[in-house]
């Protein structure tokens, strides 16, 4: 009885290790076996379109609303201490350091990650991947690599756009509606925000999250059970695993970057 449970634990561990190994192999094969640039560019552009451009609307809309909420909440809290001019710095720091990379990554996982998984899973189920292999084209190069690169490229861009829209949204609320002097809003912000410390660190986070989310999405698609049920499960797993991984890594990165460890 106990032995059975221990065996089950061992089996789980082994299969998780094997899955991790397979995902590493996908990453290695598609990044190391880099496609010829001539062939790569059109594929990459197409993927940036699907992954980045089509995510733009959701990123801009969420960024604007989150910025506006931050502006409003920040104002109502800070006004009690007479420091309402500091709302600019509060909004900018929380967006740049945390909210822009994290929320963008979560939205990215839901919008682009799930689409990637479903698309690759469906290609597997309809034997398109096998068919590519038989034609003598490496699916890692042709299908996986452009999607991975597109993910790495799009996430930081989306995250920056998110931050800018958010800061602008907060400015609309704080300056135009609540009447904070706009000079104070921007000057306070500029004084508190350090380019290297805040903007670049936030960007690094976005790059790491983009990497994690795309990797998980691509792996789940490539490794799914090629049936409709398998694809739907893989899609769910992409969103769940990617979101958890983003939140976990965010803590680690924050501790490393801002935590004086």
């Amino acid at each position: 009885m106990i032995l059975d449970n221990i065996q089950r634990l061992g089996h789980r561990t082994l299969s998780k290790c094997a899955a991790f190994g397979r995902s590493g192999q996908i990453l290695f094969q598609s990044i190391v076996a880099r496609p010829a640039p001539m062939m790569m560019l059109p594929l990459l552009i197409k993927q940036i379109y699907f992954i980045g451009v089509l995510s733009l609307v959701i990123i801009v809309v969420s960024g604007a609303f989150i910025g506006m909420v931050l502006g409003l909440q920040g104002y109502t809290i800070l006004v009690d201490y007479g420091s309402e001019q500091a709302v600019g710095q509060m909004v900018a720091l929380s967006l740049l350091r945390e909210l822009a990379p994290v929320v963008t990554a979560l939205l990215f996982a839901g919008r682009a990650g799930s689409a990637l998984t479903a698309e690759i899973g469906l290609m597997k189920a309809t034997e398109q991947l096998a068919s590519l292999e038989m034609i003598g084209v490496d699916p890692y190069r042709r299908i996986i690599a452009p999607r991975l690169y597109a993910g790495f490229i799009c996430m930081p861009l989306l995250s920056m756009i998110f931050a800018v829209v958010g800061i602008w949204g907060a400015a609309v609320v704080a300056v135009d509606w609540l009447g904070i002097y706009s000079g104070a809003y921007w000057a306070n912000m500029q004084q508190a925000v350090d380019f290297r410390e805040d903007v670049i660190n936030g960007l690094i986070k976005a790059v790491v999250f983009g990497f994690i989310v795309t990797w998980i999405a691509v792996y789940q698609g490539y490794d799914c059970v090629p049936t409709s049920e398998g694809i739907s499960q893989a899609t769910t797993r992409t969103v769940v695993y990617a979101s958890l991984a983003v939140l976990g890594f965010d803590f680690v990165l924050t501790a490393l970057m801002f935590g004086d460890l």
């Binding site: 451009v53 733009l56 861009l157 920056m160 921007w186 500029q190 925000v193 380019f195 903007v199 960007l203």
Partner: peptide, 28 residues
């Protein structure tokens, strides 16, 4: 393909504009 490429170009441009705004306007 042309519209796809144009929109990707705009997207990349937006990203860089965002970076410049963050550098100049936000972090001063």
């Amino acid at each position: 393909i042309r519209t796809v490429e144009i929109s990707v170009g705009i997207f990349m441009l937006l990203g860089f504009v965002a970076l410049i705004l963050l550098a100049l306007n936000v972090s001063g």
